[in-house]
Design a binder for these strands. Structure first.
Lengths: 190, 190
DNA sequence: ATTATCTATAGATCTATAGATAATGC
DNA sequence: ATTATCTATAGATCTATAGATAATGC
């Protein structure tokens, strides 16, 4: 039973990883501590040696999910056009547990504790700054405002495409919003 | 104790109204049947004479919330500009329980049952058609695609403005997205 | 000796049902 | 007689804690 400090750190990481995935998929209240521990290969009793409360895990899991996503979904794209196409893809839509937590948890964050909302806010600021830096050269006007428009359209379109029961409408939302955004922010000044 | 059929219909309406408000505020799983009944002035035992299951109430409450919202938030606005300003206002942000359920429940709908997702989808189609019909005369291109962009920006910006813990950022999101949308869809052909 | 994890459980929920009660409405 | 609502509760959950166990690490 007893485990080393290194093993404890690995256990901690596994708990956070499971939570970061399942919270996006099922919501911040959608899975129990016991089930998270089971998926991480442990039992519920050990949880409170890692976190003071369930909410502490929520905060840490949101941070972990956002860090992972900033690297994969946003930063890795060379141009704004590529970023739009990646974010509003069917692959991203179908990968809730590995996708953008800002979109997957927007309603949950609004209903959550101050701690959760604060991490969420910090990470959103980071993503907005990233997006602002990706705007094509020669784009006129308020770049931060335009980044906010794009990210709002991202969050809304991805969320709607997941919520609707009609697969055709779901695709239309992704493709239409993607096409409109690309035409609004062309790669070069025309 | 015994009540007339007319009183039963009133009770039913009160249950749906409470649910329609509280679900938007707390999420589809955020309030118990017992608490909904208490707010509607009854006790939990009577609930199942009105609904076969909790999920049946969810479906009916989503429909009721969407009907109410289509009338107040969308249809009542004479121009697209007015519609944008109303939707992306601080008043709407601060009125979750009386505001747009498409935005307030987008994550919840994606995680919910088929029945709930189907009502949600129907009502979203209705709202998109409404928005399409509000596009200013002379707007070029695919009107449905543009309506999808606007509604995605609505849902995303309103959700984000509610999720963030920083009041200044919250206002910036609403005001920036509002201004960008208005400048993208001017009232007349220029 | 300390501690990471385990089993077990207390106490608080939640959905749904059973049976009692008191009106309605044929 | 029927039924809308009530009280009470069964059975399933959920967070958090208590105490046991078996390794680690001074």
């Amino acid at each position: 039973m007893g485990s080393s400090q290194a093993e404890k750190a690995e256990s901690h990481q596994r708990i956070v990883d499971v939570a970061a995935r399942r919270f996006r998929e099922l919501g911040l209240e959608g899975i129990s501590v016991a089930d998270i521990m089971k998926e991480a290969g442990m039992t519920v009793g050990g949880f409170y040696k890692h976190f003071a409360s369930r909410d502490d895990l929520v905060v840490e899991a949101i941070a972990a999910a956002c860090e992972e996503m900033e690297a994969s979904v946003l930063t890795a794209q060379p141009t704004l056009k590529k970023s739009i196409q990646t974010y509003l893809s069917e692959e991203h839509r179908d990968n809730v547990s590995g996708g953008c937590p800002i979109s997957a948890l927007v309603n949950d964050a609004a209903r959550s504790t101050d701690g959760a909302r604060e991490v969420y806010t910090e990470r959103l600021e980071g993503s907005l700054a990233l997006l602002e830096s990706q705007m094509p050269e020669g784009t006129e006007g308020n770049l931060r405002a335009k980044a906010m428009l794009i990210y709002s359209a991202y969050v809304g379109a991805l969320g709607l495409s997941r919520a609707v029961s009609d697969p055709k409408l779901s695709r239309q939302i992704l493709n239409s919003v993607s096409a409109e955004l690309i035409s609004l922010f062309p790669a070069r000044k025309s």
